[in-house]
């Protein structure tokens, strides 16, 4: 559903910008003269929430699908000096970060949850993880024009989680209740158990952005942006999953320059 909303916004902005191309008003023209530029970017990103390095509990990754992650950014840049080589930009990003992975793990600490009840322990077997998070992000970027058409940008970002899902299921293995010597609960023959940590996800996050864009036409650029989270998807006091998972996403898209 969230993806559909973002897609709708995206289409809206594209049509708006097409419209805007026809009747750019004086305010924008004036802003441009003073070294301001405004861009609306739309893109798709892929990546994942990954522990770095991969913890030893993970024995193999059976499948990985980044899903469809939309990104929508409105960016205002103030170019500095007469040459306008350097600029500083900020704005607002609405983005999805999601993925689905299937991994084989050994003695991976987790909790099977249902309502208030939970069974924690060490899982050996298959784990399917589904993450789908929507963030509103404020970037703060330094921009540098390598050429008239090609620019790079970098800087920190600050994200707030609007809506997030972190769930999945375990199957084809066994849970040792509480600790590795606890009772062995075998999940064989397609029997599985679900887990859901959606309510434990970190709300505020920060990280770094590294991007580049190439102006293909007067008003249109292609861009790419790497977003590297410095914080795990879960707060530090969340001990259920023993390792940190950092969001690392790479976006490609089109940017409309006013």
């Amino acid at each position: 559903m969230r993806k559909i909303i973002i897609l709708a916004c995206l289409l809206g902005i594209i049509s708006f910008s097409t419209q805007a191309q026809n009747d750019r008003n004086n305010t924008i023209n004036k802003a441009l003269e003073k070294g301001w530029t405004i861009e609306v970017k739309a893109g798709l990103s892929s990546g994942g929430f990954s522990p770095i390095p991969l913890p030893r509990e993970i024995r193999s990754i059976r499948s990985y699908s980044p899903g469809f992650n939309a990104l929508l950014e409105c960016q205002i840049t103030k170019w500095i000096g007469s040459k306008a080589k350097w600029g500083i930009s900020s704005g607002l990003i609405i983005e999805n970060k999601g993925m689905e992975t299937k991994a084989r793990v050994k003695s991976y600490h987790t909790e099977i949850i249902n309502g208030k009840d939970k069974v924690s322990g060490f899982w050996t077997g298959n784990v399917k993880t589904n993450i789908d998070a929507t963030y509103i992000t404020i970037p703060l970027k330094a921009n540098y024009k390598l050429t008239d058409r090609f620019k790079i940008s970098f800087g920190p970002y600050f994200s707030y989680l609007l809506d997030g899902t972190f769930d999945g299921e375990v199957s084809n293995g066994y849970l040792r209740v509480k600790n590795p010597t606890g009772q062995k609960l075998s999940f064989e023959n397609g029997k599985s158990a679900k887990y859901d940590f959606s309510n434990d996800m970190r709300e505020f996050m920060y990280g770094a952005l590294l991007g580049c864009s190439w102006q293909s036409f007067k008003h249109l650029s292609v861009f790419s942006q790497l977003s590297w989270g410095y914080q795990s998807i879960f707060p530090n006091d969340f001990k259920t999953i023993s390792f940190k998972m950092y969001p690392i996403y790479l976006a490609f898209g089109l940017s409309y320059n006013f």
Binding site: S50, R59, S60, I61, K106, S107
Partner: peptide, 17 residues
């Protein structure tokens, strides 16, 4: 990206059971 996600299956830890 692919290096991060695919290359680093580490040595198996000793058994805990």
């Amino acid at each position: 990206m692919s290096t991060i996600f695919l290359s680093c299956i580490r040595e198996e830890a000793l058994n805990t059971e």
